[in-house]
């Protein structure tokens, strides 16, 4: 299936869990926040949230800012 991750389309296994996606991206889940279709999926639900065709994800972290 296709998802859109931080604005970039990419392939993902059907029903991929959000936690599996973050592991495959080598991201530390304590340092990112994730929105799926403009709604936050809290960290506690990453391991049970399966992604769907066409999902739009935002994976964010902190950077320097004023």
């Amino acid at each position: 299936m296709r998802i859109v991750l931080n604005g970039e389309p990419r392939d993902a296994a059907d029903n991929l869990l959000l936690s599996e996606l973050l592991v495959s991206l080598q991201l530390d889940s304590s340092r990112v926040a994730v929105e799926v279709n403009e709604k936050i999926v809290p960290r506690a639900r990453h391991a049970t949230h399966s992604l769907k065709e066409g999902d739009r994800l935002e994976v964010v972290t902190f950077v320097g800012g004023g």
Binding site: L27, V32, V59, T61, F62
Partner: peptide, 19 residues
């Protein structure tokens, strides 16, 4: 201290995080 929220860089990762 203030910080900004931005997309994680998934391609060009230096591995260094402000945190």
């Amino acid at each position: 201290v203030t910080v900004a929220v931005r997309r994680e860089r998934l391609v060009d990762q230096q591995g260094r995080n402000i945190l």
